[in-house]
Design a protein around this nucleic acid. Sequence first.
DNA 1: CGGTAAGCGAGACGGTACGTCGTGTCTTTCG
DNA 2: CGAAAGACACGACGTACCGTCTCGCTTACCG
Lengths: 205, 205, 205, 205
Amino acid sequence: MSGLQRGRPRSAHAHQAVLAAAVELLTSGGYQRLTMEAIAAKAGVGKQTVYRWWPSKAAIVAEAVLSGHLAAAASPLAETGDVVTDLRDWLSGQLARLTDPSSTALLRGLTAAAAESDDDAAKLYERFTGPFRQYVVRRLAIGVQQGQLRPDARLDAAADFVIGALIYRTLTHGNLSGQGGVDDLIEVLLAGLGPRPGTTATSPG
Amino acid sequence: MSGLQRGRPRSAHAHQAVLAAAVELLTSGGYQRLTMEAIAAKAGVGKQTVYRWWPSKAAIVAEAVLSGHLAAAASPLAETGDVVTDLRDWLSGQLARLTDPSSTALLRGLTAAAAESDDDAAKLYERFTGPFRQYVVRRLAIGVQQGQLRPDARLDAAADFVIGALIYRTLTHGNLSGQGGVDDLIEVLLAGLGPRPGTTATSPG
Amino acid sequence: MSGLQRGRPRSAHAHQAVLAAAVELLTSGGYQRLTMEAIAAKAGVGKQTVYRWWPSKAAIVAEAVLSGHLAAAASPLAETGDVVTDLRDWLSGQLARLTDPSSTALLRGLTAAAAESDDDAAKLYERFTGPFRQYVVRRLAIGVQQGQLRPDARLDAAADFVIGALIYRTLTHGNLSGQGGVDDLIEVLLAGLGPRPGTTATSPG
Amino acid sequence: MSGLQRGRPRSAHAHQAVLAAAVELLTSGGYQRLTMEAIAAKAGVGKQTVYRWWPSKAAIVAEAVLSGHLAAAASPLAETGDVVTDLRDWLSGQLARLTDPSSTALLRGLTAAAAESDDDAAKLYERFTGPFRQYVVRRLAIGVQQGQLRPDARLDAAADFVIGALIYRTLTHGNLSGQGGVDDLIEVLLAGLGPRPGTTATSPG
DNA sequence: CGGTAAGCGAGACGGTACGTCGTGTCTTTCG
DNA sequence: CGAAAGACACGACGTACCGTCTCGCTTACCG
């Protein structure tokens, strides 16, 4: 066991300050302005301290996402009983959040961080999209339980569709508003998960 | 017209050499190694020449994609008459291509390039995913014509789903093989585009 | 022959600015404050430009000495006809110069620069002490011609004595003033170079 | 009186280890490699312990010199009765020692240490050259007693000459061997200290 | 056909950020 | 309370690229 503590313990304060500084720089100035030197300076920390904790910018961003500093802030999951309504509302909410310039900047930053390091990419995406996926899958599972969706619905595939499309549209079009696309997405998605045609579905009402 | 040509004309050879060098650097060494200096050096070209033609790395990559140097190389579209078979085959083909490490590197590079410049992002994605989208939409449209899909199917939304999920999975999991996920994706997608349950579809034959 | 000029020629202006900046920093703040970054900053020059011209701080200092930016400023050689008077005056003058704090700082800096690099040390000392040595040897040679000094006087050894003692005292005692030591030095030196006892010399008094 | 000892006494072992480590680093790797961290590491000592005892590198080197770790190792003074023979032998011996690369490195290191700190310079030189000066002055004094040298000989000036020239030549030429300069130095020096021409010197034999 | 104008390879320029190293201080635990 | 260990804020190091700017040369058009 390496247990015995030797030397001055690492400063939790410095750790937090770095994460906070990174988030602020990322959301304000984009990934361009997210330099190690700027992070250290804004955090009031030596560069060496930053490197002592994280090996790369991507790792910092990843931890910031994980620790909630860059909260995906999944909007609360309303459960009205109707999977269509719920998902539409939730998707609309996410979309509204992603329309916010700072969120777009954040997503862009995450993308850049992920593109930078093969190793960190999976971790980053997992941490960032995890909450989204969780909610989508959970809500769909409930739908399955209630017979609104077919029992063998591919929930993971559906979640990938939703998240992928969300990210793709955000990065592509920059601004998602005014597309009226949410309904289309929902329709395609849910139709594909609904009870098999020909199957006698128990009416949900 | 400003047309009257003065001075030495721009060298098409230099133009091509730059694109080729960029592609090679991108696929071999990732976006990290794709520096303007490296591009110029490998192309045997002065840096100024590069900047004379393109304002940024992203622009070079965009043009490389456009001009087919970084071919999306959309696999030929087989049309067996059955939209499910066709799409599954096509998706499998794309997936196989994206499984190739150099394609992953390329996609990562494109992502990085897009993340770097807000302006170029849309253009880049459009150019890179354009052929994909084109094929998917066209094939789906044929399906609609043939009555295999509902007439009011949201083809654009479907295409976004497919492309988004494809990119997302590539970036996330790195290696797409062995997921058996294609069938799931197809199933979700096509079920959502199929004839409305309860509607009597006229057989196209 | 490498003759053909390629690329932008090196900027003589930058070259000079660096030397000037180095001298100013050295005389004002000592060798401690003579950092590559400070030199570049004060010269209004990129660090890379400094490194392009010189491999080390010591080399910069060496060239500054050579080019007269850090002039040894050998005081004009009075030739009254009496070697004792001349050397005493000259030595007093040098001593007065070396008493000046900036000269002491300079000498200390040169010493530090020399101590830093085995290769540059000889060059540095040679360039810095060269003018001194030249004058001493020349004046002594005249004394030999005029019969004031023995014909086989070891002028080089004498010059080493003078320069060595000068530097040693400056570095050791910091302040040479008020030592009244010049006369002692002169006496020891010239007695050792005077006509051999027993030889019938024209009596100097 | 502050006398009553509280807490753990300072470790003499640590003290010695630091000095030894400093000497080894200085003679092996030059002043460049003589860093506080390296000293502490090689000595198996905490950095703080080093700083607790010495305020600077120069101080460490100074003490190392003083305590004989960096022995000037003045060669034993032979006294044959003839001041010329004795001084020549002694000077040759010193020269041989200084020709040794490790001695040159040491001298360079001392110079660098001295150049670094105005305050420590005098102390360093005094400690390092003290034994030299002592011997030279003593031997010359004997010469005076025995009538080989003039009674009013400036022994301090002479010692400065000898030491200054020795250091200067070592630093300048790196390698003193093969210069045949010792004899020249001796000749100049002793001639300048010999009995005044015209004075009736008691024959030493 | 000679002048003029732009593009060309080359590479130096002023900068910014990199990741590492050393400094001197501090904060732990252990003896 | 000293000593080891080692983290801390700081600042300089030498390198890599950035995007711009001269150079001398080449290649077109135009008068």
